[in-house]
C-alpha cells in the first residue's frame, strides 16, 4: 500500500544476530536508551545466515532501508560466520553502489551484546540517513504483492 508522502515514516528492516546485536538491542531496551521506533527486527542465528536475497527482497517489498548487524569480527559464536558475511556484504555494498542504489539504503554494522548505547546510536544514524533519502523508490515494486 502506498502511503501519503506527508505522513511517510521510514520502515527499516534489521537483521540482527541473536548472540550479539539482538542482545545489544535488548541491552539498549533494559538500559532505557531512546531510539527511533522505525526498525523491524528479524532475529537470525548469525550474520552469516543472512542471504543477500533477503536484503534485496526487503528493498523490493518496499522497505526504505535494510541493516545487517552481527558480532564484531573475531567474536562470532560460530567462530567464522561473520568473516564469511563480511566478504559477502563487502561485495553487495560495492555492487549496489556500482548499480547506483542510494548510499545508506543498505548498511552493515558490528554491535556486541555489551554495546546497548551503540545500538541506539546506530539506529538513530540509520533512521536519520533514511529520512534524508526519503522513501525507497528505486527498488520497491510499484505494486507490492505478497505472492
Amino acid at each position: 500500500m502506498k502511503e501519503n508522502v506527508a505522513d511517510w515514516e521510514p520502515k527499516i528492516l534489521a537483521f540482527l544476530c541473536t548472540w550479539c546485536s539482538y542482545a545489544g538491542a535488548d541491552l539498549a531496551g533494559v538500559s532505557r536508551y531512546q531510539y527511533p521506533p522505525n526498525i523491524r527486527i528479524v532475529k537470525v542465528p548469525c550474520s552469516g545466515r543472512v542471504n543477500p536475497a533477503y536484503i534485496l527482497k526487503g528493498l523490493c517489498q518496499g522497505y526504505d532501508g535494510v541493516l545487517v548487524s552481527g558480532c564484531h569480527p573475531g567474536d562470532c559464536h560460530y567462530l567464522t560466520g561473520n568473516y564469511h558475511a563480511r566478504r559477502k556484504f563487502h561485495l553487495l555494498a560495492r555492487l549496489l553502489d556500482f548499480a547506483g542504489i542510494e548510499e545508506g539504503r543498505v548498511r552493515f554494522s558490528w554491535i556486541s551484546a555489551a554495546e546497548g548505547a551503540r545500538f541506539a546510536d546506530v539506529m538513530k544514524q540509520m533512521t536519520d540517513t533514511i529520512v534524508k533519502l526519503g522513501p525507497n523508490t528505486q527498488m520497491a515494486k510499484a505494486q507490492v504483492r505478497y505472492d
Partner: peptide, 29 residues
Amino acid sequence: CFADITRPRLAGRTADPADAMFFHLLRLM
C-alpha cells in the same frame, strides 16, 4: 535456481524492473 524457488516465491516475475533487478543483482552475487 533461486529464481525458480516457489515455496515461498523468492524472485518475482512481473514486468516491474524491480524483479529484473532482484534477479540480476542476486545472480551477480
